[in-house]
Design a protein around this nucleic acid. Sequence first.
DNA 1: CGATATCTTGATATCGGTAACATTGGCTCG
DNA 2: CGAGCCAATGTTACCGATATCAAGATATCG
Lengths: 315, 315
Amino acid sequence: MSPTRKKPTVVAAATPTMADLARLAGVSKITISRALADSPLVARKTRERLQALAHQQGYRLNVSARNLRLRRSKTVAVIVEMQPSSNRTMWDPYPLALLGGISQELTSAGYSVLLTTRQGIANATIQTADGLILLGQGERGKAESQYERLGLPMVVWGAESTDDRHVVVGSDNQQGGASVAARFLSLGRRHPVFIGNVEHPEMAQRLHGFAAELAKQQLEPTVMPPAGWTLEAGAKVVRSLARRKLKFDAIFAGSDLLAMGAIRALVELGIGVPNDVSVVGYDNTPHGAGFLPPLPASNRIGRKAACCWRARCSR
Amino acid sequence: MSPTRKKPTVVAAATPTMADLARLAGVSKITISRALADSPLVARKTRERLQALAHQQGYRLNVSARNLRLRRSKTVAVIVEMQPSSNRTMWDPYPLALLGGISQELTSAGYSVLLTTRQGIANATIQTADGLILLGQGERGKAESQYERLGLPMVVWGAESTDDRHVVVGSDNQQGGASVAARFLSLGRRHPVFIGNVEHPEMAQRLHGFAAELAKQQLEPTVMPPAGWTLEAGAKVVRSLARRKLKFDAIFAGSDLLAMGAIRALVELGIGVPNDVSVVGYDNTPHGAGFLPPLPASNRIGRKAACCWRARCSR
DNA sequence: CGATATCTTGATATCGGTAACATTGGCTCG
DNA sequence: CGAGCCAATGTTACCGATATCAAGATATCG
């Protein structure tokens, strides 16, 4: 309404700025800034007075402003790759388990975590981030070069390769695969199966270690690529094994999720685990550790009814 | 070195700013800004030329600057409450499953997700956020008032209550509990147990619905508070039930995790599920759906060896 | 042909902080 | 007693974007 737009003196904005505090305290902005940063440049008494004032006025730092000035953001973007056809409720539990640790460590180090999926990249404001963490089991190569352009420090979870231009964190896949093979051999298993997509570098390394160890006994694993990363994919592989009447007495699944699927299918087929077939997974997810018979079908109706989500708004 | 700090013309900074582009193109900053925003105020030809230039120069918007100017951040903070004594690898899978959906929807709506735990609050820059989402099973009341001070729009997952001052989203706990009871009754169960901490509002509501439905048949559930939210806590409750020789033929666990623990303990005790005891969980987590016999002890050595994580740096 | 409407573009101020340099007053010391 | 120094605070300029208002160029019209 009023066309004159001079200094609105009595606006009493939602939250005060440093300038507001400065006016109130009769000092300059910079003194406020210093006081709130606990800088020894400000006399202790003044400092305490100003801090009290800020608290009392409900002052909240404008992080955008600070970041702009300081040219940093104290934020790390975590990019979780999901399968292209991902339904949104089911994430691979593995990256999620990692996410927990990452989030805790970063926040306790004073950093914020910006969570994104690869799909959301375009919109998301990753550019603000001081660094990048890449999780998940996509085709790594493509993704990496996509993010490299951003010129940010980057850490990738997965298999290392010779031409990495950034930090890679992961398990020793080859050694892991070898351990599994050794275990199978010590149990007297002679017909091992590997479930995993060899296009995926980590899987390939696991298989490599696995096969190498088996080769010492002139054994060779049957390699079965699953149709995806889900529990169901693991189950399908086992069913197909049975259908084709292949002989097997040990299964090394490339992930816990696949292993759980495999076990489930085995049990359904009346094959004993671990008596008839040994099964080993990979990832050490808590869920793998707590795996047991499913809530049986007769009970799942009740479960379903109990899980009808609903949103409501209380005002 | 040089004390004169005039316009550093040839700095060729890491990434150009709008001002840089403007200089290169011989136009003003504002025109760049408009062109990149696809504003019709800029002639189509100019617009395309400038966009091409920006792309070619690898221009990246400074989000802090924009947010400062626009006084918003297009960011929603998601606060996941973890148990005080939480070890960092094990999160309750339930909030995590929610997180997946939240993250997808928000990013596809052009928002970023700022992930925090309640512990990390102090450091984290929640203040930047345009809104807040609160997940997890802490004591809600305290947390809410803590965040309310921020004056941000807030959505809370959990049980509703009469004095809510914000949006609450959750399942219909009471109806869920009732459904479970009905199911048990239709199965002819007469000795139901409820596992859940009644201090927690959602649990209380579930129990309420459960007990109310049972009361119609003059039945009353045995209420057993678990020692925490973990699978192990669920198992312990069942063991204690058995130790105390309590008679029970149906268990309603307040969460899938507790249910899995209960089933595990039952199986270990040689009690048949679902023949001897019916078990129902809550949450409908994917892990609950895929629950089966655990990877047996004989195999867990191999698993362990395969899970030795290791970090390495390729440069 | 002059005037007004329209299309493009630019100058300036501003968002809320912080770094660099300037200023003030009190104190030490030769 | 004045030079010199330290402590405490202030002035100014900027970080990189965008809104507002103004202005130049072109087109339209009576």
